[in-house]
């Protein structure tokens, strides 16, 4: 190979090296950008959730006026995909209209049936409840849409979600490791079993289990209950 040819080959290799450096820099910029964007989304969810739920009277996992004539309960599991859908298509609508107007009070009931992360998430939500932060915390957990015990609701992640919300991490961790959070979740689960629940989400209106075919069914049942209460 002549000098000129070798020079061309080497400058080609050097050019490839510069390309490689360029690709690496772009890749890292994309990763960092994606991470900051994702973290901002979470921060936005927390801020919006805190402001949104702040407008309602809440007590533990119940939201809305305790004097509301209709009481809607949902037995749910944080890892149940239909519960994630129900949170968006039923609970949000319920809060925006029925609960906001004082017609309905709504209560989330833990029914963790889908594995260890379901129990762990319910225990964490109980701990957030003890710290008066159940509602924004459950919203953050629901927004993660974790399923299949794949680590979304691992102990470490649940603690980090609490940290992101500004909760006292030491207190939260102590609660999560304490038997009382397990006892609470176990009692909630036992209650669901005693009621003969077969899955999640299960809606209960004024003590009666609602058999759902579509999400609209729950609103029809609530409207009937409201009409009956008005008579």
């Amino acid at each position: 190979m002549g000098k000129k040819a070798r020079k061309t080959s080497n400058s080609g290799k050097s050019g490839s090296l510069q390309w490689a450096v360029g690709i690496a820099v772009v890749l890292v910029a994309l990763l960092i950008g994606a991470q900051w964007w994702s973290n901002r989304q979470d921060a936005g969810t927390i801020t919006q959730a805190a402001a949104y739920y702040g407008q309602f009277p809440t007590q533990g996992t119940r939201i809305g006026s305790p004097d509301a004539p209709v009481h809607v309960e949902e037995y749910f599991d944080f890892q149940c995909p239909h519960c994630h859908t129900a949170a968006e298509q039923v609970v949000k609508r319920l809060l925006d209209s029925y609960v906001a107007e004082g017609k309905v009070q709504f209560t989330y009931r833990f029914f963790p049936i889908l594995g260890p992360e379901s129990v762990q998430a319910a225990r964490a939500a109980y701990c957030a409840m003890e710290m008066d932060a159940f509602w924004p915390y459950q919203e953050l957990l629901m927004s993660k849409k974790g399923t299949g015990n794949r680590g979304t609701y691992s102990r470490d992640n649940l603690i980090d979600y609490a940290r992101q919300m500004g909760l006292d991490v030491a207190q939260f961790r102590a609660c999560l490791d304490n038997d009382r959070s397990l006892q609470y979740v176990r009692q909630a689960y036992d209650q669901g079993v005693r009621m003969g629940l077969l899955g999640t989400p299960t809606f209960v209106v004024n003590g009666q289990i609602v058999n759902l075919t579509t999400w609209e069914d729950i609103f029809r049942v609530i409207d009937r209950a409201l009409a009956a209460a008005a008579r």
């Binding site: 490689a20 450096v21 690709i23 690496a24 890292v28």
Partner: peptide, 17 residues
């Protein structure tokens, strides 16, 4: 090899971050 180096460099820079 250049692809591997780009990946390793990206890993090193992201780790530094």
């Amino acid at each position: 090899s250049q692809f591997g180096f780009a990946l390793a460099l990206a890993g090193a820079l992201f780790s530094l971050y």
